[in-house]
């Protein structure tokens, strides 16, 4: 099952705008991608409440996982997004 572990790159962490951008991108993927921190229970990447509740800050290690057709591409797209500083992206 495609899996990637990356560090959150956004200055404000996975909150506010970075979280909104991430969740919106996750909703566009053809497969269900999950996200977790450490060994905690994974949450759907397209769940705003779930993603916020991770409490991931800049530099927090998060793991993405997905299964099925297009899973690798979906995980890669979202992992790349997480590594960027989404606070610096123009609205």
């Amino acid at each position: 099952m495609p899996t990637r572990t990356v560090l959150v790159g956004s200055a404000s962490g996975l909150h506010a705008r970075p979280a909104a951008l991430f969740v919106a991108e996750a909703a566009k993927q053809p497969v269900l991608v999950t996200i977790r921190t450490g060994d905690k229970k994974p949450v759907p990447a397209r769940s705003m409440l779930g993603v916020l509740s991770l409490g991931a800050k800049k530099g927090t290690e998060v793991t993405l996982e997905a299964d099925g057709d297009g899973a690798q591409a979906a995980v890669d797209t979202l992992a790349d997004l997480l590594e960027r500083d989404l606070d610096a992206v123009d609205a």
């Binding site: 909104a20 769940s47 705003m48 409440l49």
Partner: peptide, 16 residues
């Protein structure tokens, strides 16, 4: 506006 849009995403969250 950003706070309100985040609230919309929470309200529409399937897991909710």
């Amino acid at each position: 506006a950003e706070v309100l849009r985040a609230q919309v995403m929470m309200a529409q969250d399937e897991t909710l």
